[in-house]
Design a protein around this nucleic acid. Structure first.
Length: 107
DNA sequence: GTTGTGACGGGTC
DNA sequence: CGACCCGCCACAA
């Protein structure tokens, strides 16, 4: 199991930015990093991985730069669609083969 | 202070 | 196309 650790300033900053993502849209780790003005996609991914505010911070709205879902949920075309992907679609994001059209949903 | 890891990104093979 | 490599920054040991 992964022991919980108190979030640092950088992580809190990332959570705050991700939390501002409008429904039906998605952002990328690189974009969030740019918004944070600190770190890069690597650090943002690590921060979201430790996201202690699961329902509060829509980490599922954050995807990779290529439109791939990322580590939170990769395979969507299986017999049972993952919850996060389904939720993403519920938000109005078109997820095709585990890939999102950033051309339309990239905030 | 140094090393290793990670929900990434872009480039190269 | 996919697979592989290096570089990036933040965090833990």
């Amino acid at each position: 199991m992964k022991p919980d650790r108190p979030p640092t300033d950088f992580e809190t900053l990332v959570y705050q930015i991700v939390r501002t993502i409008p429904k039906g849209k998605v952002s990328t780790y690189g974009t969030v990093a740019k918004r944070a003005g600190r770190g890069t996609a690597r650090s943002v991914g690590t921060a979201l991985a430790r996201n202690p505010f699961a329902p509060e911070v829509p980490c599922h709205r954050v995807v990779r730069a290529d439109g791939s879902l990322g580590g939170f949920n990769g395979e969507t075309e299986g017999p049972e669609m993952q919850k996060k992907t389904r939720l993403l679609k519920s938000e109005g994001v078109e997820v095709r083969s585990g890939v999102i059209d950033l051309s339309r949903f990239g905030s």
